[in-house]
Simulated scan of single mutants.
Amino acid sequence: MVELLAEESAKNPEFAQRLDDLMTALPSSKRAAASKPQEKAPKRPAPDVHAEWQARGEAGVRVWLREQPVSDLRAIIQAQDLDPTRRTAKWREAEKLAGYIVDGLRARLARGSSFMATGRTEEQEKAE
């Protein structure tokens, strides 16, 4: 098709001019629309959920998180790396995101505390 257009352009100067006008008109309009810089909202740090957890407890944090905007909840999920598979990317409800954050933090705290409070010491194990 390109060869056919080039051949016809060589034979017919009027056709060549019209083709040239069409080709130059399209990219310039796309460039003008794409060149507008989009303003992004300034990024602010995610709230500290661990400090809130210690101050309010699990139930208090759940209520506090529901009051936060969805953008802050997403920032918390990203900062805490709670969703590496991006499962929550399409969620829009603050309540659902808040529950996900609380569940993730509860699971992490449970894993961490299991290493702290072992019922047996090394000396007791050696004695047996």
Rank of each mutant, 00 (worst) to 15 (best):
M1C: 14
V2P: 05
V2F: 13
A6S: 03
E7P: 01
E8L: 13
S9H: 06
A10L: 15
A10W: 12
K11F: 07
K11N: 09
E14F: 12
A16T: 05
Q17T: 13
D21P: 03
L22K: 07
L22Q: 11
M23S: 10
T24F: 09
L26Y: 11
P27I: 07
R31D: 12
A34H: 06
K36R: 09
K36Y: 15
E39M: 03
K40D: 09
P42V: 10
K43V: 12
K43A: 12
K43G: 07
R44Q: 13
R44P: 02
P47S: 14
V49K: 06
W53D: 04
R56V: 02
V61K: 01
V61H: 06
W64H: 11
R66Q: 15
P69A: 07
D72V: 10
D72Y: 10
R74Q: 11
R74M: 11
I76Q: 03
I76F: 04
I77W: 02
D81F: 00
T85P: 01
T85G: 10
R87S: 02
K90Y: 01
K90T: 05
W91Q: 04
W91A: 00
E95Y: 00
L97N: 02
G99K: 01
G99Y: 01
V102W: 00
L105Y: 02
R111D: 15
R111L: 14
S113I: 08
M116I: 14
T118P: 07
G119A: 15
R120H: 12
E122P: 06
Q124Y: 12
Q124S: 09
E125G: 04
A127S: 14
E128D: 02
E128F: 08
E128Y: 12
